[in-house]
Write a protein that binds this DNA or RNA. Structure first.
Length: 945
RNA sequence: GCGGAUGUGGCGUAAUGGUAGCCGCGCCAGACUUAGGAUCUGGUGGCGAGAGCCGUGGGGGUUCGAGUCCCCCCAUCCGCACCA
């Protein structure tokens, strides 16, 4: 039989599908292994060309693990809610469910063509009510939980209520939006609405007025990770800051655990680093600075921040600093433009200027603000604060270089040792005072400085009681001091912010929330799912309400339901758990299923999810862990980021002012304009001239200056995009070479985690290998030619060398070198004309993870009725590797000169005399006496002269 | 600016501190062919007629021996970026 990949691949894909070959059970008698690909969003464009890379790698690993005796969970499904389908719906009126269904179907077809071993019986979409029921359920649990810092976990909010009833806020140490203080009696005296408002301050899913990223272009708010450089990731629309009432997840409560957990997972250093940066832990101090007024300060009273009855006139600002040691160098204070105390403290003379500045700053878009980071702006309030340590009066300024949502929105400025404060001080001519020096006597005049001295090492100077201490000691001393003064304490701040969880959109999970008396209440879990209602149009209402406000009778027992929907990351944060038990209608997933599958052993996907999905799902999982659902605290044990697939563009060079095109090698002789040319009409950088002329009307009459009769195109690695004409569709390659060739070629390109250009130039080589592989089993004239003869020792050696290499490479995900090993093996067996079953049968198993179709066909031809995926991975036998002699490379001073063979049993003592006598060695020694001879057994001999 | 990664033939890449360039593309030569973007065989880092010399971004170092380990520098890519 001839190798006909179209026939073979179609045949086996059909058989696999019909027999549910890849369906697996939760079978506790076998060790488990969970391999997962990152949830794809089925876009209208079909499978992105970068996707298969990761899918192939995970598929190979899954098949390999299965052959190694593991029960492998390898599911697939779709992250199906989201903006593109809805944008399309707004434009065309087509319901997003229809678009989504169509896209999912196309994805599935593409995936099936690549021969993946997914257990499709576990497939689901995030927009399935059966699934989003559990997304809503989790939201309800979050709503009814708070984070107890003492227990360091989520707890039922009912316990907090109970505590309030008995003790008020005394001894409460919980994650919250703002510190609260009331007694049990005060609590009991509160109205139901007031109580709900107070509890909202603690819930893990809470409703609050916050500054959000409002994207008018998309008509919705966005999470921080959905905004890059002030533009929305989807669509690239400008984003502005807006104060809105939104659902928010208290992710920040988990900041420390999210950070600590990174030490327990096997992810790349770079990915962990990105997450650490995103979480952004910094240690420092919180210190209160009072507003300056006449007389002595009662620091204890000031600490209470005016919350004390009778001390309403005391105004103070809480600042956060990572450098408490530099407090003697504070020469001014800065508040963010959003700071609530600005109106209260601004002097009448300064009021117009301050108000103008605040209005200007608040109305700037995020993009403008970020683009002009280097520009210094700000305004003096006319008010002064008191440095609580030095008791100096310092001016209070307002500037947008202080951010409202980090720390407290107020800073103590130390221009000598902070570059931003320095720039600000220089711009507004504020004093700069040095308080840190490399050595205690090494002072200089800050007036002459061109930049601040940000060093975190050195000695304190001009710093009163901490003079002479190191920076570290000084910091500690100041924290001690402010503590005893009751005006501050050492603390930790995180950059990680709570996640905005509302979207003013239709195509997402509805919230299981209704409003009574203006306060939100959850729908009973027995009544879930809250299904997405039908609406007539997908736009916001005329009054600016989200689309769900259009739904008829969108109420619960007469109460209005929530109009917002959940964001894209809601459904993708816990999907990996649902695969463990996807059809369970009683629970998210059963305890038994979770106890068995535990967490994902291998997660494969792109690094672009580093600050979104991979933080949210870790948070989601930790919460489910806290409430006893998930038995593992980290969801993804090992994670591999497939490298980005870059485009490889081709160019033709038009001679300026003509319709003449000059070949790459000759272009330097002319003045040319490079023009992108469709890579699909270029083969190995040689342009198909006829196809080029037909490609676009402009080129129909093109003339060419050739080299060696050909037009050679230039090339460059760029981002893959339609406008650069460097997009290649995996379907076309499957059509041309077959899935097995494509799978192996993608692996052959290089290490899986490395970024690489999508260059199909080498695919022919892999195609040749596949055909060569086929011919090991089928003779030149296409007849089955496997013999039952006993292989030679040499043939066994080739096989076992390969078994060892493939096993090692599979284990370390080095799939490129494994493909290379298969090629070497096929070359060697071909040279040996080996057609023996005892060699070719195990080899077929080895290859089956990489090229499942051809392997399945050959396996059947070898006489097996069961699938090759159920075969056992061959056992490596070291005895075939044993040799009696070893050919030593002999080097002189580390340079390899010649080779001499010695029995492996020979020791250095036995080798040396023979070595010295050797005429070639004599020649290289040229009469000199070797200083030293190094023999590394079975490795190398080095003669030092 | 901060953090992470990467630098090896014309190209993709390979090398537990031990023979640099495996495997493949491309290229060259040959075989079979009416033909070749098919198949097969051989060759292919640079310089040199040759023995040989030089070669892993650059410069130092450790070592009998460095692409690999250490220090400094350069380039490219990725992430973060007024985070106090």
């Amino acid at each position: 039989m001839e190798y006909n990949f179209r026939e073979i691949e179609a045949k086996w894909q059909k058989i696999w599908k019909e027999s549910h070959l890849y369906k697996i059970e939760n079978d506790p008698s076998k060790p488990k292994f969970y391999v997962l690909d990152m949830f794809p969003y089925p876009s209208g464009a079909g499978l992105h060309v970068g996707h298969p890379l990761g899918y192939i790698a995970s598929d190979i690993y899954s098949r390999y693990k299965r052959q190694k005796g593991f029960n492998v969970l390898h599911p697939m499904g779709y992250d199906a809610f989201g903006l593109p389908a809805e944008q399309y719906a707004i434009q065309t009126g087509q319901h997003p469910a229809i678009t989504t269904e169509k896209n999912v179907k196309r994805y599935r077809e593409q995936l099936d063509k690549l021969g993946f071993c997914y257990d499709w019986d576990r497939e689901f979409k995030t927009c399935d009510p059966d699934y989003y029921k559990w997304t809503q359920w989790t939201f309800i649990q979050l709503f009814h939980s708070y984070y107890d810092k003492k227990a360091d976990k989520a707890m039922p909010i009912s316990e907090l209520e109970e505590h309030f009833n008995l003790h008020g806020t005394e001894d409460v140490n919980a994650a919250c939006s703002e510190e609260m203080s009331f007694t049990a009696d005060e609590w009991k005296a509160k109205s139901e609405k007031e109580k709900q408002a107070a509890l909202m301050n603690y819930r893990l899913a809470y409703l609050a007025d916050t500054w959000v990223n409002w994207c008018a272009g998309l008509g919705t708010v966005l999470a921080n990770d959905e905004v890059v450089n002030g533009l929305s990731v989807r669509g690239g629309y400008p984003v502005e800051r807006k104060l809105m009432r939104q659902w928010i997840l208290r992710v920040s409560a988990y900041a420390e655990r999210l950070l600590q957990g990174l030490d327990k997972v096997e992810w790349t250093d770079s990915l962990k680093e990105i997450q650490r940066n995103w979480i952004g832990r910094s240690e420092g101090a919180a210190i209160w600075f009072p507003l300056a007024k006449e007389g002595q300060y009662d620091w204890k009273r000031i600490y209470m921040g005016g919350n004390y009855d009778g001390l309403q006139d005391e105004v103070s600002f809480e600042i956060f600093t990572t450098r408490p040691d530099t407090i003697f160098g504070v020469t001014f204070m800065v508040l963010c433009p959003e700071h609530e105390m600005i109106g209260q403290i601004t002097t009448p003379e300064q009021k117009p200027e301050v108000e103008a500045y605040v209005t200007w700053a608040k109305n700037r878009s995020e993009r403008e603000r970020q683009a002009e980071v280097k520009k210094v702006s700000g305004v003096f309030t006319g008010a002064y604060a008191v440095n609580p340590i030095t008791e100096e009066r310092i001016p209070i300024w307002v500037s947008d270089y202080v951010l409202s949502d980090y720390g407290t929105g107020a800073i103590m400025a130390v221009p000598a040792h902070d570059s931003r404060d320095f720039a600000f001080a220089r711009h507004f001519n504020l004093p700069v005072r040095q308080v840190v020096a490399p050595n205690p006597n090494d002072l200089s005049d800050p007036g002459t400085w061109e930049e601040s001295m940000d060093s975190k090492t050195g000695y304190m100077v001009n710093s009163g009681f901490i003079d002479g201490m190191t920076v570290k000691e000084g910091g500690k001393a100041i924290i001690e001091k402010v503590k005893t003064m009751c005006i501050g304490y050492g603390t930790v701040n995180y950059r990680l912010r709570d996640a905005i969880f509302s979207r003013q959109r239709y195509w997402g999970e509805p919230f299981p929330i209704y409003y009574k008396d203006g306060m939100p209440y959850t729908i009973p879990v027995e009544e879930l799912p809250v299904e997405l209602p039908e609406i007539d149009k997908f736009q916001p209402t005329e009054t600016g309400e989200p689309p769900l406000a259009r739904a008829k009778d969108w109420t619960y027992k007469g109460y209005q339901m929530e109009y917002n929907t959940m964001p894209g990351f809601a459904g993708s944060s816990g999907y990996y758990l649902r695969y463990m038990d996807p059809h369970n209608d009683q629970e998210y997933f059963s305890k038994e299923a979770n106890q068995y599958w535990r967490n994902v052993d291998l997660y494969v996907g792109g690094a672009e999810h580093a600050t979104g999905h991979l933080i949210y799902s870790r948070f989601w999982n930790k919460f489910l862990f806290d409430i006893g659902l998930s038995c593992e605290e980290e969801p993804f044990k090992k994670l591999i980021n497939q490298g980005m697939i870059q485009g490889r563009s081709n160019f033709v060079y038009r001679i300026v002012g003509t319709n003449q095109y000059v070949s790459n090698g000759l272009k330097d002789q002319y003045e040319v304009t490079p023009i992108h040319v469709d890579v699909n009409i270029v083969h190995n950088d040689i342009l198909d001239i006829e196809a080029f002329k037909q490609w676009m009307p402009d080129f129909a009459n093109a003339e060419f200056i050739l080299e060696n009769g050909q037009y050679i195109c230039g090339w460059e690695v760029e981002k893959m995009s339609k406008s650069k004409y460097n997009v290649q569709n995996p379907d076309d390659l499957v059509e041309k070479y077959g899935a097995d060739t494509l799978r192996m070629y993608e692996m052959f390109l290089g290490p899986i985690e490395m970024a690489k250009p999508w260059d199909t130039n080498g695919i022919e080589g892999v195609f040749r290998f596949i055909k060569k592989f086929w011919r090991l089993y089928n003779s030149q004239n296409s007849e089955w030619c496997v013999s039952e003869e006993e292989p030679t020792r040499e043939e066994y050696k080739i096989l076992h060398k390969t078994i060892k290499k493939i096993e090692e490479d599979n284990e370390k995900f080095s799939f490129n070198t494994a493909v290379s090993a298969f090629m070497i093996c096929a070359n060697e067996l071909g040279d040996a004309k080996c057609n023996k079953r005892k060699i070719l049968e195990p080899l077929c198993i080895l290859v089956s993870a990489y090229a499942p179709h051809i392997a399945e066909e050959l396996w059947a031809m070898l006489g097996h009725s069961d699938s090759v995926i159920n075969a056992t991975f061959p056992q490596y036998d070291d005895s075939y590797m044993q040799e009696t002699d070893f050919t030593y490379p002999v080097s002189f001073n580390g340079k390899m000169r010649l080779k001499i063979s010695f029995p492996v049993s020979y020791t250095q003592k036995e080798i040396e005399p023979v070595l010295i006598e050797n005429p070639d060695v004599q020649k290289w020694l040229a009469g000199a006496k070797p200083k030293k001879i190094i023999v590394v057994p079975k490795r190398i001999i080095n003669i030092v002269m």
